[in-house]
Write a protein that binds this DNA or RNA. Sequence first.
DNA 1: TAATTCGCTAGACCGA
DNA 2: TCGGTCTAGCGAA
Length: 806
Amino acid sequence: MRCMKTRAFLLDVESTSLRGKHALRLFLKDEKTKRSFPAYDNAFKPYYYLLPKGDFKAVAKKIVSLKVRDRGKEFGATSVEEVERVIGRKRVQLLKVFAQDPLHVPKLHEATKEFGQSYEHRISFAKRFLIDNGLFPCSLCEVELDGRMIKSIKPIESPAQPEFSTLAFDIEVYTPANAPNPAKDPVIMISAASPGDSPMVISYSKKFSADFVETVPSEKAAIERFCELLREKKVDLLCSYNGDAFDLPYLRERSKKIHASFYPGRVLSNLRTRQAGIRPVTRVPGRIHYDVYPVVDFLDTVGAVRLPRMTLGHAYAEILGKQKTDINKLEIHKAWDAGGAALEHLAKYNLHDSVACLELAQHTLSLEVELSRLSGETLFDTSRSTTGQLVESLLMRRSFERGEVIPNKPKEPEVQARQQNPIEGAYVKTPEAGVYENLAMLDFKSMYPSIIISHNIDPFALNCDCCSKEAHVSPQGHKFCSKIKGLVPTTLEEIIDARRAVQAQMKKTPKESNEYKQLYARQWGLKILANSYYGFLGYARARWYSRECAESTTAWARHYIKQAIEQAEKAGFKVLYADTDSALLQFKPGEEKKIEEFRKSVNSLLPERMELELEDFYPRGIFVSKKQGDAGAKKKYALINRDGKIKIRGFELVRRDWSRVARRLQRSVLEVLLKEGDVKKAKEMVLKVIVELKSGKTPLEDCVIYTQVRKKIKAYEIMSPEVSALQKAQEAGLPYGEYSTIGYVITRSGKSISEKAQPIELAKDYDADYYVNNQVLPAVLKILGALGVDAEDLKTKGTQKGLGDW
DNA sequence: TAATTCGCTAGACCGA
DNA sequence: TCGGTCTAGCGAA
């Protein structure tokens, strides 16, 4: 029974070799038996396109006979075909140049440069395979197998999703010196957690009383036991937190050092770590290594969560609202040496890291699976992708389906030129500081996507030959075809329509069901994709970058919001504020109904796809002035709705680079003012906090300021508190790498603020004057000022010694 | 090598 | 020691 036909989920694809020749290794999971297995394809051949300049046949002939030398080996194109494709909007004849090996493609491209322009020569082979076969990862396909070889594979339309056999792990390393060094520092514990099983820790040479610890004879045995565990559990999804950069490479290096056999994969291939931009990426052959760290980072950038720091503990707390066992990193090796309770605590900590990682993986998986199915990237890639990569992947697929040649990535000088020439963005109206009542916030539903669709904003619909008067003309004069819909608006419209359909389906589905969760994840993924289109059009490295498209999108946005503001004023409302796609209107008491009439009149003038919505009514709201001058501050306001729910934007209290003591007080002050309008009470709260700070009773944790250090330390021109604190932390051997977020306290010792900054791990005291004058007072003075409180009065009274009068 | 621009604010730096 | 300018980070949309 060597030949068989089956239905299976496509889990992953990777480029590999088979008997010395290139091949693709797919990981499949049988729908019925739930067995995961590798299968190979060596029939699919790499290729790229060439648009020849000069005589077509002559060029084809030259390429066929071309020989390229690389590392002592000679090769050429295996064949050349004439094909018809679309570039931009033009049908053209192209040469499709096939290669024997994916590695030959870039070499052939170099060698054929003189004959014309190459296309699609920088698409990875695995991606090429997926696109050309119309296969979607995490989806079902029909496979015909001859032993391990794939005879045919076809996608199956089905909403079914694979169930993964999942395991999360985490390691602890003995690091008495500074940074962990695999040449010297042993792995002392490996923990593992999988659904339905009790989590466990593998360790050695020490006595543990906890029954979750499995003791083996040595470090080597521990590493090998871990690999064995992965085989026993037949793990599909191996979860880690930063396993890409730390746990997996460390285990590999350590295994080399101590001659442990380290094969955590499903096949006997080694781990592969490659540098993907700023961070490394590690593949475990035959399993999907799901690193939760980049997933959390992604959620942070799309605004789904906001983390003070990117640690596992912070992610666990912010995303799942749970606390896990903590330990001071500097104490780990001491706990190992000390044994007893300290060692038990370390084991527990190690255990909880795997448990937390597993829970976070499970929580985020449905979204990532949906994004993978939507973008067509493997789950491995998707979970490490940025929004730009997702949009690009999707467009590449749809481009292929339409017979369009995928545009090349821009070369570096072009990227630079684009970056130096940014486009004009949104319109923001300056508010006047003060307290206002009877407010309504209106906003355009999915403004940028709806503009792109409505006006057919697409790089290849720009300046078409077919339209003259009937073309969409942007406020800046760019013309977009009104007859043939472009790739960008088409795919975007599909996304929006799909999201509507999913949302409709959700209404018919019980909220607690699995199906509902899946639908929720799907509409969320679709929303993320839709919202990323505009940024992608203006992204300098994008294959579909178009200055004209991006600037037309924002120009139309400015036009529509300003038009709405004008209409609102004509209708008798006061427009207090507007930003990009929203406007805050003030109405006369009891005239809520007029808002709805106004909204309808605006919508009657809009293109069909665009819509102004009522976001909410707000009985009261506060705007403050800028720190310098009397002008109202943009992007900074607080509103309270009829249910007493407060919406706060831009204030220090939403910023992680402000101390908790200042943020908490600012929130309380805003709440009291919005809910009760009690200025006196607010003033008293401020003074209470100041007194506490001055008395030294404020907990140090409330004084921590978190700031990310976003460049290499050497690259800084200016010494800032965060850079200074990071340096001090690194000197003390704390595990802060480059680009990390540092939590620091301004202490009493030192002259400049940078000198006074100490990492929280090392800080012993705080500088009360700094927290009063540079944190608490700036956070509340502008707010109280907006209510007519004499801010200066509070400041002098507050900072004077004699607070007894209050 | 990995989505955009607009806007606020801090703290350092620098010259008077 | 001041005020202006600049670098840098973070948030709004």
